[in-house]
Each structure stands twice: as C-alpha cells, then as structure tokens.
Design a protein around this nucleic acid. Structure first.
Lengths: 131, 131
DNA sequence: CAGCATCTTTACGTTTACGTAAACTTCCCC
DNA sequence: GGGGAAGTTTACGTAAACGTAAAGATGCTG
C-alpha cells in the first residue's frame, strides 16, 4: 500500500505564493476537491497538480472556468464515443488557442527587440553628445 | 504631404469584432487618443496599431494597465539616461514574462498531446470491444 | 492553562473590463 | 422633412476573482 503524501492549505499557499482564501475559492468553484479530516482540508498530490495547472492557466490568461475544463481533460473522460469525440474537440480547441498565443508571443518578442534597439540607440546618442 | 488614412469608431469595431463601447472604454483608460472632428472621434493608423496591441495583450492575459505600459514602449521614450534605463528595465521585465509564457505554452501543448493520446487509445478500445 | 499559530465559516467589499439602456445630435436619403 | 444609421454623453449594472474582516474551533507549547 502506497500512502500518499498530503498537504495542508497553508503549505500549498506558501509553496505557490497565494493566499488560503484563493485556494478555498478555487474549491468553491469546483476546481479542487480536497479530503477532510474533521473540518480541516487535506490535499493530495493530485490537488497539488490541479493547482499547478490553474496557476499556469492564469499566467496564460485563462479564466477559472477554462482551467476547470483543462483539468477535466485529465480525468479518465467519458466512456462512449460521443464523449470521447467531445473530448478530442476540446483538445483541438485548446491547441488552437495555444498556437495563437505562440504567434502573439513571437510578435511581442520581436517588438521588444525593436524597442530595446531604439532605446539603446538613443542612449548611444546621449553618450556622444556629452563627450 | 502624406495624408493619413482615418477610421471611424464603427469601422474599427467591425474590423476587430469588438463593440464601440469597448473602444471608448480604452480611450477612457488612456490607451487610445483619437482626434475629434466636432464631437466625432477620428482614429489614425497609430490608434489602430495601439488597438491591435491591446487585443494581442488580452489574448495573452495582460491587463489594460499592462497594455498601456506596452504601448508606451513605442513612444519615443524619455530623453535622459534615467528614463532610458527605466525603459530598458521594463522591456526586460516584459521579456521575462513572455519567456515564462512560452514555457507554459510548451508544457500545456505537451499535456494536450498526452490527453489526445489517451482519448484515441480509449476510442480504439471501444472499436475492439464492439467487433 | 494561557497563548499563539493554523484552521474553519460567513459575509460584505473591491477592482477590472466591459454590457446595457436612455436620451440626444448629426448626417444622409427618398 | 421624416426617418434611419451612426455618432455622442451619462450612468447604472454585472461577472470574475479574489481581499478583508469577524468570530469561532483546534492543537501544540512553554
């Protein structure tokens, strides 16, 4: 029997630099499902993974609703063709979003290159004028 | 003299699939600065570019405040070393964010690969069982 | 056993990013 | 010249994602 490691809400909050309020809020929204020992919440590694997914989603601008969908892509999924096809559709949709984001990032990176270039040149100008 | 093309608020709204309310809101927040002909707003190509930046920022989860900062990286910037250094710092900061997002996207893409794999295998199983 | 840390629930408050509606001008068209 | 269509301002409403505060239970610790 492999006993799973567990986490308290405070531990997770510290590790991920968020408040316990935030963690409870995610549970409220159906994104986390911790166990209970009495009143107290007990988090399993799977909860920790879900939390990671949520925070990664946030960094990419996903809403909690979208992150919830993402998390559900990890659950064994439905058992009939229809559900599996729906799953594949969702995956394709997320993939398309990621590709768009990739393009956006590349465009922004290029713009950062140009902005830096301009700033450096302006700085060089200053140097010359002051000699 | 090169006359610039101009746009009405409705034109821009149609082109970018947003409402005029949204465009006016961005102006309110200091992200756009259209000219006026009487009461009516007149948008120049530079406004259109700014709007594109805003929407790209949105797709990457930037707040309007962050997009405003981004737009300001395009304005000739300050004229002294201190301001230029601040500009370079901001650029570096945005760059770091973009790199984090790149990592996040790659991680998610891999997870989409795995999820799709699982779904396809489950589908194959169904095929076999029903023969 | 007093005290501090950590946990709990409940509930109202706040920021961001618009939506929606009302009431009014301006311009063009038949 | 009476409608539309598109523009304007003003203002209240709303969903999402928490923040913040209050009031209490639980558990270790000197």
């Amino acid at each position: 029997m492999t006993t799973q490691k567990t986490y308290s809400i405070g531990e997770l909050a510290r590790e991920f630099q968020i408040t316990t309020r935030t963690i409870r809020f995610y549970e409220d929204q159906g994104l986390l499902h911790p166990q209970r020992r009495g009143q107290t919440r007990i988090y399993l590694p799977s909860d920790r993974v879900a939390l990671k997914l949520i925070l990664r989603g946030k960094r990419l601008g996903l809403s909690l609703a979208e992150s919830r969908e993402l998390i559900q892509l990890y659950i064994p999924a439905g058992d009939n063709r229809h559900q599996l096809q729906a799953l594949l559709d969702k995956i394709a949709e997320k993939r398309a979003m990621l590709e768009q984001q990739l393009k956006d990032i590349q465009a922004m990176q290029q713009e950062m290159d140009e902005a830096e270039q301009r700033a450096r040149e302006a700085m060089m100008q200053l140097e010359n004028n002051n000699v």
